[in-house]
């Protein structure tokens, strides 16, 4: 009697875990570019945490902002962390919400979807709708996206003295490989 019940509990547990198709980021790169008249600044990070639930059509990404590297000098990187993004106060950039659009995680193909949700950078929350490509292949699932972030939207202020060196709108590109969990 008791055995049967335990089996039932495990069965129900098992069903829920196969039912929810959760995938997590196994490797990823996020790069941003600031293209200003006097200076081009490029930085990137591989420290991208992400999880997608294709069944509930939900996603969440977190990036520790201080992990961005590249820049034109170590001092520039320090200013990025200290003066602009204030990573001591706001350590993580977050984006989480819902996946909207046609796609099937079980059949191969490229699907253009919209990621609609909460975009949190520098402690300022914006609702964003970002076009992304979900590529389902026999090897796995990749996602990629490119979008723009206006610094003003996140209360990142550029002093007039460096106005010609930092773009007002930052270009971001991301790609990630996913593995099931």
């Amino acid at each position: 009697m008791r055995k049967n019940l335990l089996a039932l509990v495990f069965l129900v547990g098992g069903i829920t875990s196969t039912y929810s198709q959760k995938w997590k980021v196994s490797s990823a790169e996020v790069e941003f570019r600031s293209e200003a008249p006097l200076e081009l600044i490029i930085a990137s990070t591989q420290n991208v945490k992400g999880v997608l639930d294709f069944d509930k059509r939900q996603f969440a990404f977190i990036i520790p902002v201080s992990s961005f590297d590249g820049f034109n000098s170590p001092l520039q990187r320090e200013h990025f962390n200290e003066n602009y993004l204030e990573t001591g106060k706001y350590p993580n950039a977050k984006f989480y919400g819902n996946i909207v659009g046609e796609f099937d995680a079980n059949s191969n193909g490229d699907y253009e979807v919209k990621a609609i949700g909460t975009f949190d950078i520098h402690g300022v929350i914006q609702n964003r709708e970002i076009k992304s490509i979900i590529s389902v292949t026999s090897k796995g699932i990749n996602i990629s996206s490119s979008f723009l972030i206006p610094l003003e939207d996140h209360n990142i202020k550029i002093p007039t003295i460096v106005y010609q060196k930092i773009a007002e709108v930052i270009k971001v590109e991301m790609r990630a490989e996913l593995t099931p969990i």
């Binding site: 420290n47 945490k49 992400g50 999880v51 997608l52 639930d53 509930k56 939900q58 996603f59 969440a60 990404f61 977190i62 520790p64 993580n92 977050k94 989480y96 919400g97 819902n98 949700g117």
Partner: peptide, 16 residues
């Protein structure tokens, strides 16, 4: 829901 996904990631970050 999403909050669960987010807190899952936050736990991961806390390990770094």
């Amino acid at each position: 829901g999403q909050d669960d996904l987010l807190s899952m990631l936050e736990e991961e970050i806390a390990d770094e």
